[in-house]
Design a protein around this nucleic acid. Sequence first.
DNA 1: GTCTTAATCCTTACGATGTAAAGTTTGCAA
DNA 2: TTGCAAACTTTACATCGTAAGGATTAAGAC
Lengths: 200, 200
Amino acid sequence: MDKKSYHHGELRAALIHAALDMLEQDGPDGLSLRGLARAVGVSSMAPYHHFADRAELLAAVATEGFERLQIRKQDIQAIQPSLREALAAGGANYVRFILDNPNLYRLMRSKEFSDRHRFSALHRAASAPAATLLDLMARFLDEQSLSSPSPIEGAQLLWALSHGIGTLALEGQMRADIAPDLAYQGSLAMIDGWIAGLKG
Amino acid sequence: MDKKSYHHGELRAALIHAALDMLEQDGPDGLSLRGLARAVGVSSMAPYHHFADRAELLAAVATEGFERLQIRKQDIQAIQPSLREALAAGGANYVRFILDNPNLYRLMRSKEFSDRHRFSALHRAASAPAATLLDLMARFLDEQSLSSPSPIEGAQLLWALSHGIGTLALEGQMRADIAPDLAYQGSLAMIDGWIAGLKG
DNA sequence: GTCTTAATCCTTACGATGTAAAGTTTGCAA
DNA sequence: TTGCAAACTTTACATCGTAAGGATTAAGAC
């Protein structure tokens, strides 16, 4: 932690931390490698000893984001009384996460990390929340003896709904204060549509 | 159209056109003012006589995108047998538009145009598809005598669902080939959830 | 304790970008 | 014809990502 030493010692972590701060403060365009280095008090080229390039640093930040999301997801889900409500609450929570971390979420879903080989740590972190949702969905469908939708389809639909609400709210296309509730209600409507639809 | 003249004559339109091409070809990061100027055969600073800055040019491109979307929306919607199916078909069509114009859609929804004063033309163009959907939704709710959800809420939910499916498909989180159908099925599920839910 | 080595960090340099400032060319109106 | 405004160019600067090579230091071997 002594700031005077030639070797920073915690540069990698410090950069990720500074990036998280700078991301939500100045937006994604305000985030530059040079700016980060400046903020941490290190030369422009120092970050390159910990990250091959800008994308790799951003991927590390995004990975951190997925880990935070997963923690929140698990915390919330455990409390719900029923699987139906757990699914809807998961959606609302997802929207809340998006609204709490606008630029981080945008980064997490950025297309520039699509290379699964290069950013394997990111993709591993990203798959955890997806797997949690898929599991919950499968248990719900089983409980309700529904043969349609498939677990994957159902999970994708609920996910897409919350993702859509969250990102639209982020862009000011939707009132942010009611967005989580909208996700809750919308999820319930879709779930009830599945329950009702198949009876006939 | 004579390329040698000092005055291009159609620079503004030519830039927007070139930007649309370059956008889907090289991605949003490959799109630079200088690159555009080069492609059109004009100096780096020429674009600044038609657009105050980069954002203004991009806003014009995005506006063009909303106009194209609106045209497609109207074409599709007229054919549907019922309001219920028109809503679902609208969702599938929206997803198809996203998949057909990935980078254009990303641009259209880019946060950098949130200033409603500066980009009023954009916001006007963007509100047309939204109004069309809202109208359809209101007619449907009226037809079904549903007091909940409200037209706005219902429209936002269907919109968010398709937006979510489309953007997730864009990012490779979802199979693009079945995404439009997923939007169709998901929309129907939600709609049926509204119809069924309120009866009880 | 000294030497070696590898990790960490710095300096310098290049090409690309957005855009500010000021000059040049051209079409059009008086 | 003259004059002016619009369209376009040239030049210049700050900032960015990053390539190449040099300086500093921590850690282990002897």
